[in-house]
Design a protein around this nucleic acid. Sequence first.
DNA 1: ATTTTCTTTAATCAAATGATTAAAAACTCC
DNA 2: GGAGTTTTTAATCATTTGATTAAAGAAAAT
Lengths: 195, 195
Amino acid sequence: MSEQQDIKTEEKIKNAALKLFYKNGFAGTKTRDIAEEAGINIALLNYYFRSKEKLFEIIMEESLQKMFTGVKNVFNKPSNIDEKIKSIVDNYIENLRINPNLPLFVLSAIQADATGFMKKTHLSKDFISPFFNQIKEELQTENALQIILNILALTIFPFIAKPLWLILSDMNDEQFTDFIEERRKLIPAWIKTML
Amino acid sequence: MSEQQDIKTEEKIKNAALKLFYKNGFAGTKTRDIAEEAGINIALLNYYFRSKEKLFEIIMEESLQKMFTGVKNVFNKPSNIDEKIKSIVDNYIENLRINPNLPLFVLSAIQADATGFMKKTHLSKDFISPFFNQIKEELQTENALQIILNILALTIFPFIAKPLWLILSDMNDEQFTDFIEERRKLIPAWIKTML
DNA sequence: ATTTTCTTTAATCAAATGATTAAAAACTCC
DNA sequence: GGAGTTTTTAATCATTTGATTAAAGAAAAT
């Protein structure tokens, strides 16, 4: 068996699918586009993944993994709040540099089918509870949820709004990268001033 | 001519189209779905709007209007920064209460076709310049762009991430509304502490 | 009332699209 | 090197989908 080759073809399809799903969503991505992008025959897509839908589910599952595994570990790490905030921001920005349109992909898919998503994912309150409780107790604030959402908003939103922001701010890609690098340092400071 | 009836049918189609485009995007929305949602024959869609694409462009144009006209006026109003920040947040939250998934719709569409969008819209640096310069000059800060993005992020992101946030925070719709109402007051204060 | 114009419908078309099939090609193992 | 297995391809199918057409129905104008 050409183990090496098998993995390569399967991976080629997944890479192509990810790229197109991220850009155009499920309905906007045609199996023929994926095949062309991957440089393979359309039938291979069904041979390896049975259907476009199954392929999408795999991409989605791995995307959720990328989006949440890192932060989950940070949430559960035994360190102080300042360190955690810094880690969360660093973690997200690092991931988003590699996959800038992962959030829009995930959030669009959830919006299109929130109930279907709920059934498949294992996300719940438990996910943020450790961090939520730490903020609430150590800082004696009732705004722990607001603060958590602020961290996510300040970090993730720029990537979601990037194409529009480039127009509004008249930046190019390189300037945007610098702009984000600046934010990476500023966001933890901003959050601290809110507390 | 049944002027009244005409407007009604056209409006029914537009309302149905907006609802479905917002939820499922352009590719995910089928003309038959729009027709069914509007309670009309498919041919009427083409009779009134020539094509699905033209209908989409109209919805997009009106959406951009809703998304930017209000803020543009605030930007250009001769008032102090604190007042402006408050107005921007109030303005957005009011609009987003009515059309919660407008931002995701617009941002997804831009991502799918950034160049096509650039050609049609008249947005540019000029849009934020008045507010940008005011912040820069009155507050002597180099972070004016970061601050503007923060206002947008803190205000808009919760609506984009709403379906996911409801799961993560274990809120229901009513609690989310209260949560946003709280933010409406908190965001201007948070921004002030950043300056 | 009758003609004319505007609106709506059912039926249909052509292209796009997800999926399958049968056969060829490549590879593995003996 | 040949049987058996896995991978790949070209061709095709059935359905979906955006759009059109021709005719019916409703309203307006004369």
